[in-house]
Amino acid sequence: MIRVGIPQALLYYQYYPMWQAFFQALGAEVVVSPPTARPTVEAGLARMVAETCLPVKVYGGHVCHLRELGVDCVFVPAIRATEPGLFNCSKFLGLPDLIRATVEDSSPLLEIDIDVGQGRGALQRAIYRLGWPFTWNPLHIRKAALAAWEAHLGFQALMRERKLTPPEAIEGSGGEGHALDSRCLPDTGSLVIAVVGHPYCLYDSYINHNLLGRLRRMGVRVITPEMAPAQGLEMGIRRLARFKYWVYEAEVTGAAGYYLEDPAVDGVIAVVVFGCGPDSTMLDVVQRAARRQEKPYMGLVLDEHTGEAGLVTRLEAFVDMIDRRKSARGSWEAGSMEKRRECA
């Protein structure tokens, strides 16, 4: 049985159930690297130039780790466009090339080029080429691809309907996900804060110092881009930026546009990593919109040097500020602040 390694980084949080279903249907064993930890980050840092963004360095670290787990190959996709006419960050466009150049001793890479702009035929050919090492039978590959698509749709519906984050949904479906701190249940919070950003910034609790867990422990109900309806995200993009440019724009501009308008949301936190090209453009658009809407907004910019203490202080200050603002408007539950203190 071929062991396929999937790094638990970057697009893992968006597509893991799909990839898992595909490779399992082809009779492969799927191995996921363990959650990001200090050695993972260090392995990545040592291999890439300093200007590279943190999630990509982390990805490199995961690929290194997978080699130690003894996988036969590592799945590294190059995603050009998921809709015609869109553009992706250069790192996603050339991810396999980047990994080949920087992690020279990695296990062989399984590459696929996804470019929906090239048409249906090109996409199908790319999928067949990906499945080729596992089976000679194209019908088998076709079946695996359909199962993968099914899994992807189920995954998205699960997150939307039950208001789950991707790691929770992956864990629920038997994957390697890790649960967030559930000492305070998601629904008990009186404050609702939308956290927007790329999934690899929001759900990698090493990169963001367990931001979502911390917010929940403060008694905040956290909502994330995956919980918003797809049309809502599209509308958010149109409202803020007129038309879509980046492949992963929905989770930043779209979610921000949607949640900034939503009266049930008390504040918005945008989580980005330093040096992110797409986000450097989108964040500015979001910031301007937040100012117009007069909704509390905080942009958290993370990198490998981000100190935990500073981050926690900013989070507490932001939550307290929203709390006061709410209480001034007369909808404050008595004692909620003390409860939050105990939790944190």
Binding site: E51, C89, S90, K91, G94, L98, R100, A101, T102, G277
Partner: peptide, 16 residues
């Protein structure tokens, strides 16, 4: 320029 997307890719690959 600092934070240039494509050139960071090139810079990472150049050592190879």
């Amino acid at each position: 320029p600092f934070t240039c997307l494509p050139e960071i890719m090139a810079q990472n690959i150049l050592p190879q």
